[in-house]
Amino acid sequence: MSDVLVSARGLEVHFPVRSVGLRRTGGGVLRAVDGVDLDIHRGETVGLVGESGCGKSTLGNALLRLVPPTGGRITFDGSDVTALDRRGLKEMRRRAGMVFQDPFASLDPRRTVAQTVAEPLEVHKLRSGRRERAARVGELLEMVGLDPAVASRYPHEFSGGQRQRVGIARALAGEPDFLVCDEAIASLDVSVQAQVLNLLRRLQRQLGLTLLFISHDLSAVRHLSDRIAVMYLGRVVEVGPAATVASDPQMPYTQALLSAVPVPHPARERARQRIVLRGDVPSPSAVPSGCRFRTRCPYVFEPCPDVDPALQPAGAPGQLAACHLHGVVGIPVADDTPEGVTTTPTS
């Protein structure tokens, strides 16, 4: 499992913030994704968690180049995604699918289920002939637990869960290796969430998919993932095996995040100690210097405002956290020049 399929190095997605008025210059920069390092190994499921607005979805979109990265590198199966030409990008998008959050918005209302699911087949010329394509569409619909006879129906005739299945069938049509599920269960009813979650897990095993499961639902992520990556304000601040990150988080933010998850056991739930963070998440257009979590961290000390912490081994084997409590490593904040590398650990 050491074979890396998707990798991000120092990935940045910055959006210019336009000031109101006629002039389009001026205004700041919104750092949606700000220096993300993440490796996703072949065949594993990585859960990406974080609160709203921390850049989870932007990261997922950037990995497929649906949002253009403004800095850093993405590699997909060894090739540099940011440097792909039109043909390379098309092939990459065949090998990497995406399931979207809102199943009511992600299906074209004017196209039948068959047309939607067949789109990747047509785009990549995967099946020649109408009949073969229809057969493949039926196969895909069955794979996601839908009756192939619904192929001629329009999306509005389906429930949210069924639509999401159609969305999954479309994402699988190109026979991808990698699937990004961007809050794929967030807008479904709770009863349906479990079904879709189990469907994803079954498909992942059956097809040997590599999965990036983006969610703010920690229990869903723990249920599905091999490894968990925690994002805060555009940066991955902790990553590691799902069990250890969930049971023994090394980064104060992860600790606070996990302490907010209710425990389905009355006695333990009563004993649960919540870590309530001070204040709000800073705006991604005004990221604090040094450690971006220092404005809310209960353990803040001297190096925090001055050194931007890098991911370093902490806790269990394979677990990485970006926190000075495990030793001060990272990039010191310089007043004028933001660049100035001293120690960068091998991650």
Partner: peptide, 8 residues
């Protein structure tokens, strides 16, 4: 965006 994500 979904259609673009499959390579259209």
């Amino acid at each position: 965006r979904a259609s673009r994500s499959v390579g259209a």
